[in-house]
Amino acid sequence: MSSDVRFTDFKSDKQPTWCPGCGDFGTMNGMMKALAETGNDPDNTFVVAGIGCSGKIGTYMHSYALHGVHGRALPVGIGVKLANPNLEVMVAGGDGDGYSIGAGHFVHAVRRNVDMSYVVMDNRIYGLTKGQASPTSRQDFETSTTPEGPQMPPVNPLALALASGATFIAQSFSSDSQRHAQIIQEAIEHNGFGFVNTYSPCVTFNDVDTYDYFRDSIVDLEEEGHDRTDREAAKEKILEGDREYMGVIYRDENSVPWEEREGLDRNMADIPDGAPDDAMDLVREFY
């Protein structure tokens, strides 16, 4: 690992095909800055991406990376990290990937608290399939497949995380590049599962949750004097529901990652070139 890593080292030579103005540009830049800022380099970093516009991120970044099947990015990231705890693992996906098809994995990844970061690029719409409701779409948000709106309340991902025992819950806005990068950096530095829901507006299919909407409504918790270590205060903020917060909402300073509790510190790739020396003992157990 070299000390002179720049964030552009995490950029691949592929030009993104996101729509001009897409929030994902800013989201990705912040991720790259945060990775460089925390002393990582492309050769010790593993990025896992889900399916959807957000999933393309693995192609536009330069690191070890896997772009998997829809909704399963978190289990892949957990597998990578447990097999080699020395790697920096970052999982990125969209609101459909994380809160719809992958919602079950989200709950359990939060519970397991493996030391990795998870950035959800939340645009409250399915963009790649050209504009259908997502789990974070508003109840009355009209789309091609929900003409009257989904008629269900949106998922509150922060509440879902809190209820699952999260040790780090944050929210950021792709357009506020400095704060976004800071927040991602804190998620990386957190000793456990660093979850960041990033508002990453879709300029093509979502005319409700726009840059203007977020700029007007977002409240920075830094300016509110919020105590991030206070779980009760975090709960209140998260359940308020009618406000868009930015910043680290909750951080458990005593978090111990699962792999540490389980005593995993070895790179599992290193194995002998034959059966273990004491392997006949395994056979003798069956006497």
Binding site: Y64, V80, K81, L82, N84, N267, A269
Partner: peptide, 8 residues
């Protein structure tokens, strides 16, 4: 799959 990508 993730563990295998990591080399295990």
């Amino acid at each position: 799959l993730g563990a295998a990508r990591a080399g295990a």
